[in-house]
């Protein structure tokens, strides 16, 4: 009788320790977004460059990478070379576009950022009061969402996109969708 209880106690302690160990591996920033597999909320905002507006709905039928950034964001500087590379890579694709949302920022600072770190060439929406960002459940920058051709959010990436992200994360989703 006593032996069984000792085993139960040992088992309980081991289970708690195991849960702790698993919890340590979690990235605290990687809070699961409830928006994944939900329809993306459309937005239309003045473009950072030029006089047009940038809207998500205009790209229905294509995969859209929506990248939230700001000139005040340090990790965005680290992410920027990959965005440049990705923009050049997908330029020929008819099924994939990129949009930037420059939030909590001033147009001057954002333009200076692009001038200094390079301009990837896709359009950026201005979101000075981070209305779009809050509407999209954004915590900080950079954060990226992948929206499918039906306008459904399929993936959220918190933190900088890493080299190879497109091949490892986006392409499998895109190919799974066309099958």
């Amino acid at each position: 009788m006593n032996g069984i209880w000792k085993l139960v106690l040992l088992g309980a302690v081991m289970a708690i320790l195991l849960l702790f160990a698993l919890g340590l591996k979690n990235d605290p920033r990687d809070i699961p977004s409830p928006l994944v597999n939900r329809p993306a909320s459309d937005f239309s905002a003045p473009a950072l460059e030029g006089h047009q507006t940038v809207s998500l709905g205009a790209h229905r039928g294509k995969w859209v990478l929506v990248n939230f950034w700001g000139s005040w964001c340090v990790s965005c500087v680290a992410e920027h070379p990959y965005l440049m590379e990705l923009a050049a890579k997908v330029k020929g694709r008819s099924d994939f576009v990129m949009i930037g949302v420059d939030f909590r920022d001033t147009p001057d600072a954002a333009r200076a950022f692009l001038k200094r770190h390079g301009n990837p060439g896709y359009a950026h929406a201005q979101d000075p009061e981070q209305k779009i960002a809050i509407d999209w459940g954004v915590y900080g920058a950079p954060e990226s969402y992948l929206v499918d051709p039906n306008g459904t959010i399929r993936m959220k990436h918190t933190g900088p996109l890493f080299p190879g992200w497109f091949e490892q994360r986006a392409l499998p989703l895109m190919q799974g969708n066309t099958k």
Partner: peptide, 8 residues
């Protein structure tokens, strides 16, 4: 807010 940020 719950729809966008979850239970957190």
């Amino acid at each position: 807010f719950h729809q966008r940020y979850g239970d957190y």
